[in-house]
Design a protein around this nucleic acid. Structure first.
Lengths: 115, 115
DNA sequence: TTCATAAGTAACTATAAGGTTACATATAAG
DNA sequence: CTTATATGTAACCTTATAGTTACTTATGAA
């Protein structure tokens, strides 16, 4: 996955509006643009712009059906980033998640009387 | 993890410059701002702004040591998002990754003669 | 054909991002 | 004390985001 693609995916995910759209499209595959609009206060144009960002990141795929556009969630980019994280960052986690757990444990013990 | 915090983390990760800074600080804990600057063409001020974004996302933590500032990578936000993904999205993956594999397989078979 | 509806495009505004240079402050070293 | 170094702050510029309204196009239905 190219850096520019990762930029697009992270950028697309960096908005609660867009994450909400993802949730909607994920749970109701084939939703139209107007269907998605019903869940928001903002204008349809604003929603379409968010959809454009999501499609640029390949997180949403669409296909025309008559005058409507059917929207589908695409998990592949998230899967790819997930894979990258669990490989590229796994070594880090292997060492530091332990630290975090240790610190959490130490903290727990320090405050044991208060619990 | 609050939506605003997720926004901050995804936004921070949506830049290859900032991901590179993360890699540097991760592999050389305690690096100073100037140390990090050595790996970039842009000005120190630009690097500091990226660091501010990373600190706002809690991905980098810093502590003063004399006139220098020591920088440390913090894995917790990534861990939290990772956990969220592997829970919130896992059901989706469970059903659709299978589809993806199926489609990939179908495609492979369709082009079998060309391989 | 006529009308209603879904989507797309254009133009505009306000704010945020990402960069710059210039200047200010704090501390280590001579 | 003086100087060099590390960081911090201010002001500015350009481009990108996120939204708006107005208009256009395409299609389904009466």
């Amino acid at each position: 996955m190219k850096p520019a693609d990762m930029d697009a995916v992270f950028h697309a995910l960096a908005s609660s509006h867009r994450r909400k759209i993802l949730d909607i499209v994920k749970s109701m595959p084939g939703s139209s643009v107007n269907d998605v609009c019903k869940y928001f206060e903002m204008s349809r144009i604003a929603v379409m712009k968010h959809l454009k960002v999501l499609e640029a990141a390949n997180l949403v795929i669409s296909q025309k059906s008559g005058r409507a556009r059917e929207l589908y969630f695409n998990a592949v980019p998230i899967q790819l980033i997930y894979d990258r994280w669990t490989t590229e960052y796994s070594k880090f986690w292997a060492s530091h998640v332990t630290d975090i757990k240790f610190k959490a444990e130490a903290k727990r013990r320090a405050h044991e009387r208060d619990d």
